[in-house]
């Protein structure tokens, strides 16, 4: 039997108690197969980050279950199955670019042994050699700045460093919370290209939060549309466009049809939220 990379089963999250209780996620079901690129999109406050934090083991569900490759998020973290890219680069300012991306290899060195004991991951990653971080940095366009400090980099370079740090873990699941939202459009498109390039090579499952419809369609195999109050999934749309998806994609009418479809679903999500 094939195990989902990410599986949420009636997952529920409530913030606060009693009268001030806020249902951030209400009975969310979601199943993501290994190697898929899935985007979460929805109005702000609909629980996207909460969902990601549940999968990352940074918060615990108040109901239902969350599984990563068949184990709990905490076990997944202990085995270093998860690569996490937050909204800010979150680099250590005293370490160089290279120092930042190589640090994860020195942390939790017992993880590899734990990983081997998890379901079908054992054979998949058996004898996995640690990646050549310099090569990864070069591929991400950071070859010239490996010895610089984060403060000496542009915002786009810092975010790229954060992405390389996460890929350097060779994670089975990559969780990214609006990683490109603070960047200008040109930088954003370049980073999308590089992300797809790395993803294609490393075959990682990606759960990617964005508020850009175009970004979601361009990157994803599947787009998950969410609605607020209470936070829930309202639509799951498979994007049936050929890969590799380069700049020419923007000229295709099918690309824009997907964009229109998702915009329409988002508006409906908005209206249902206002009515509630």
């Amino acid at each position: 039997m094939k195990v989902s990379a990410i599986e949420l089963d009636s997952a529920r999250k409530v913030y606060g108690h009693g009268a001030s209780a806020m249902v951030a996620l209400s009975d969310v079901d979601l199943s993501i197969g290994p190697g898929r690129f899935v985007s979460l999109i929805g109005p702000s406050g609909c629980g996207k980050s909460t969902l990601l934090r549940l999968v990352a083991g940074l918060e615990t569900a108040d109901g239902g279950s969350v599984r990563v490759h068949g184990v709990t998020p905490d076990q997944a973290c202990a085995a270093k199955l998860i690569g996490f890219v937050p909204q800010t680069p979150a680099l250590l300012p005293w370490r160089s670019v290279l120092g930042n991306v190589t640090l994860p290899q020195r942390i939790n060195t017992a993880a590899a042994r734990r990983r081997e004991r998890i379901g079908d991951l054992g054979e998949r990653g058996a004898g996995k050699a640690p990646p050549d971080m310099l090569e990864l940095l070069r591929r991400a366009g950071l070859g010239e700045v490996v010895h610089r400090l984060p403060a000496q980099l542009s915002g786009g370079m810092q975010q790229r460093t954060a992405i390389v740090r996460a890929f350097g873990l060779q994670p089975d699941v990559m969780l990214m919370d609006e990683p490109f939202s603070a960047l200008d459009e040109f930088t954003r498109e370049t980073l999308q290209d590089q992300l797809l390039d790395l993803w294609d090579e490393l075959k990682t499952t990606v759960l990617f939060i964005t508020h850009s419809v175009q970004e979601a369609v361009r990157l994803s195999d599947t787009v998950v549309v969410m609605a607020p109050r209470p936070g829930r999934i309202v639509d799951v749309i498979d994007i049936d466009l050929p890969r590799p998806r380069n700049q020419r994609l923007f000229e295709q009418s099918s690309f824009h049809e997907y964009e229109d479809l998702i915009r329409d679903r988002l508006h409906r999500a908005w209206r249902s939220a206002d009515a509630a």
Partner: peptide, 29 residues
């Protein structure tokens, strides 16, 4: 230490000692 930095290293299950040595103490310098 900024919340998101802590989150990144928590998802690697960094031990308390690792968190101190690599993140908290340098941050306190």
């Amino acid at each position: 230490v900024p919340q998101q930095v802590l989150q990144v290293y928590r998802t690697m299950d960094a031990s308390r000692l690792e968190m101190l040595a690599y993140v908290r103490v340098p941050n306190a310098l």
